[in-house]
Structure formats: C-alpha cells, structure tokens
C-alpha cells in the first residue's frame, strides 16, 4: 500500500460487492418469483434485471417476491424507489426490463403503458 488514497480507492471498489448487505433504504427492483411468475418466465426477467443493474453499476437491490395476486399479469416487476409508491409492471419481457430500468429506475419516469398496479403503503 503506497498511500491512503490508494486504500480509499480500493475501498470504493470493494464496497460495491458488499452493497447487497446494506439494503434497507435503497431502490429495489422486485421480480415476482412465485410459481405463477416462474411459469411465465420470471427467471429470465430476474437475470436480465441483474445484468442491467450491474452493467450500469447502479446501487439498486434486485430481489424476488412471492405471489402478489397479479398471476394473470406475470411476470411482474415492481419498482420500489424510496419515498415513492411501488409501481407494479405486468407481462414483462426481457426487452421491457431494460426499458423499465432505464426510464423508471435511472430517469425516474414511470413507464405508464406497462403499469398494472400502484401500491401505496
């Protein structure tokens, strides 16, 4: 180790690997992964979401959920940004995942034509 700056750069880099362990207030992309979701192809949606998030180096949690009662619209993706209502997108395809992440998660614009529900908690 040659300098404190070098160490701090390393920390920045390594911290990314540990992001997932400090998830409480972070934006979340939640894929419906109950039997209904998996049957409709949610595994591929989840993998795609994970790839998109890691390629863009976003500090966003990608996680899974059980059935949310939208079985007809599976696969679903829910975008949960801090202090905003959760937006549920339905009939999501691999191509639509990218759009949801770019438009909604990055830019903050809800992709209106894909929304099937809005959850206020």
């Amino acid at each position: 180790m040659k300098s404190l700056e070098e160490l701090k750069e390393l920390r920045e880099r390594f911290q990314k690997d540990l992001r997932v362990r400090k998830a409480s207030d972070k934006p979340k992309v939640i894929v419906g992964m109950d039997s209904c979701g998996i049957d409709a192809g949610a595994r591929e949606i989840l993998k795609k979401a994970l790839t998109e998030i890691s390629q863009r180096d976003l500090d966003v949690v990608v996680t899974q959920t059980a059935c949310i009662g939208e079985c007809d619209n599976e696969p679903t993706v829910t975008v949960d940004l801090p202090n905003e209502p959760k937006i549920v997108y339905g009939d999501v395809t691999v191509d639509k995942v990218e759009k949801i992440i770019v438009d909604h998660v990055v830019e903050g614009n809800i992709v209106k034509d894909l929304v099937v529900a809005e959850l206020n908690e």
């Binding site: 180790m1 404190l4 701090k8 390393l10 920390r11 390594f14 690997d17 540990l18």
Partner: peptide, 18 residues
Amino acid sequence: IKEYIATGGYEAIGKALT
C-alpha cells in the same frame, strides 16, 4: 481482506502513518 477494506479497514493506520 477485501471485505475488511470495504468497511473502511486499514484507514486508521493509513491516517495515523500519513
């Protein structure tokens, strides 16, 4: 060691030495 460094590890000795 990466995980220790990710939590800010070895920054105390870095600070002390420099």
